[in-house]
């Protein structure tokens, strides 16, 4: 059974428009139409998960090697069965055994993560707080930049102090620094908030454009 590409495209567009409107309808009120498509979405997303797991993980790494004689790929499959022991209380401890090992692996990887994540950030905080001429190792620092660097380092120190848990906040300096730190954090959160508005609208604009464009396309049929 085959279909003409045009009829498939039309069908797909119609379904896409209906899906889009179904989800958008929730803005007016929660309704049966939305709930139906919400469940359909969960189903399709799970199905896509199975399909992708097969196509990109199991087919290449499990099925193909197995069909070429690599018998040992069933070892990870057998080990993964340990996860399912959770359904049998008597053996459930085995799933925890396996998960503990996975946590252990994750913990070991943290050492590398710490070095690669933190060290470059520490190094780039080594800023000059006085104006400097350019040297072989770095560009010149103007008066404005030096002031900026002071603000930068001040912010960093205050925020770090805010997150200290073992210092009693009865010391005036600590209290004041920590409070300033919290205020400076609010600046960062404000920036994130302001920036996020743009992000959210972009996606909505994309959907509105889709509806406008498919509306134009459908308009042609009825003409």
């Amino acid at each position: 059974m085959t279909f003409s590409p045009a009829s498939v495209d039309t069908m797909v567009m119609l379904v896409a428009v209906v899906s889009t409107l179904a989800i958008l309808s929730v803005v007016y009120r929660e309704n049966a139409f939305y709930r139906l498509f919400e469940h359909l979405f969960v189903g399709v997303a799970t199905g896509f998960g199975i399909f992708v797991t097969w196509r990109d993980a199991l087919s290449e790494n499990f099925w193909q090697p197995l069909s070429h004689g690599s018998w040992y790929v069933i070892i990870p499959m057998l080990v993964s069965l340990l996860f399912y022991t959770v359904m049998i209380p008597k053996y459930a401890w085995m799933s925890r055994f396996l998960i503990s090992i996975l946590f252990g692996l994750g913990a070991g990887a943290t050492f590398r993560g710490f070095a690669t994540e933190v060290f470059p950030q520490v190094k780039s905080s080594f800023l000059s707080v006085v104006p400097r001429a350019a040297t072989e190792a770095g560009a010149a620092v103007s008066t404005g930049q030096a002031l900026n660097n002071i603000v930068f380092l001040g912010t960093l120190i205050c925020v770090m102090v805010y997150f200290f848990f073992s210092f009693r906040h009865d010391n005036k300096i600590v209290t004041k620094t920590a409070r300033t730190g919290r205020w400076l954090l609010m600046i960062a959160f404000g920036a994130t908030f302001g920036s996020t508005v743009m992000a959210r609208f972009s996606l909505l604009i994309d959907r509105i454009r889709f509806l406008l464009e498919s509306g134009t396309a459908m308009g042609h049929w009825f003409r």
Partner: peptide, 14 residues
């Protein structure tokens, strides 16, 4: 027809 519009529209609700 389903996954892509459902995914982007759910996101667009944001």
């Amino acid at each position: 027809g389903l996954l892509k519009p459902l995914q982007s529209t759910t996101f667009a609700l944001l």
